[in-house]
């Protein structure tokens, strides 16, 4: 579904991606792990065309993402941004229903609102939240509204940038289950970035670890624990000692 070949990206002197190769199959749940600041969010933005790579090729369903018609291309995607990125001039339900109320096949207002409330319920938010503004919600609630917005239009491909950070363990469990459901029931392709190893095990079919701008290791989640790769071992066990240097 998604093929990434030799993608490079630098911001000024800061070489972030240095030749990333990664393939995500249709209907598969890929989880990306890796240290903070290694360019995981940038990689997702490259796929969506929000950041233009310096080199390399990205294909979605066989098509070069720089050559496709943008509207049709983006209509297939849903994205949860790391910071939520909710529109603060709109109420919660208007955020969730943003895409439903625009473009071809838009829904009338009451119907869009109903769908939005249903999506909010799926991420564990009560209907009362629908008429609040994003600024009136807690960080974890904002995150879940962002999640509801990402899945509202039932996209084929969904990106989740740290869906469970800032959530309590029970809510994190609910969200993990939701992501799994979306992949299994709706047949969506999902790419999730997370630092939470419980989430990795709950969500992933495949795992890719990014280190120093490259994919260090990738494979099925079942093989993750057994891999001898010292970088992966250090990361998944959260050890301070190991080949990944931590500045102190």
């Amino acid at each position: 579904m998604i093929q990434i070949e030799g993608v490079h990206k630098a911001f000024g002197a800061n070489q972030v991606l240095r030749g990333v190769n990664l393939t995500v199959g249709r209907g598969e749940s890929m989880v990306i792990i890796g240290g903070s600041g290694t360019g995981k969010s940038v990689l997702l933005k490259c796929i969506l065309g929000l950041v233009r790579p310096d080199a390399g090729m990205i294909r979605v369903a066989g098509e070069d993402v720089t050559r496709v018609s943008r509207d049709a291309f983006l209509a297939r995607f849903g994205m949860l941004f790391q910071g939520g990125a909710l529109f603060d001039s709109m109420t919660v339900w208007q955020n969730v229903a943003f895409r439903l109320m625009r473009g071809k096949g838009r829904l009338p207002k009451d119907q869009a609102r109903e769908v939005a409330i249903e999506k909010l319920r799926r991420v564990g938010l009560k209907p009362e939240v629908a008429d609040l503004f994003p600024a009136e919600l807690s960080g974890g609630m904002q995150k879940r509204v962002g999640l509801a917005r990402a899945i509202a239009a039932q996209p084929e491909i969904i990106f989740f940038d740290e869906p469970t950070t800032g959530l309590d363990p029970i809510m994190a469990g609910v969200i993990n289950e939701l992501i799994r459901e979306i992949v299994v029931e709706m047949g969506a392709t999902a790419v999730t970035i997370t630092h939470d190893m419980t989430s990795v095990r709950a969500i992933a079919d495949h795992v890719a670890m990014i280190h120093r701008g490259k994919v260090r290791w990738t494979g099925p989640v079942a093989e993750m624990d057994a891999t001898p790769d010292p970088y992966v071992q250090q990361f998944i066990h959260g050890r301070a000692e190991g080949p990944i240097e931590s500045v102190r």
Binding site: K45, L48, G49, L50, D71, L74, A75, F77, G78, M79, F81, Q82, G83, A85, L86, F87, D88, F98, R99, R102, G103, R149
Partner: peptide
């Protein structure tokens, strides 16, 4: 502010 909080990026991904 919309730019730095990724709201502009979010608009683009929502086909706007």
């Amino acid at each position: 502010t919309m730019k730095v909080t990724e709201q502009i990026d979010a608009l683009v991904t929502l086909s706007t």
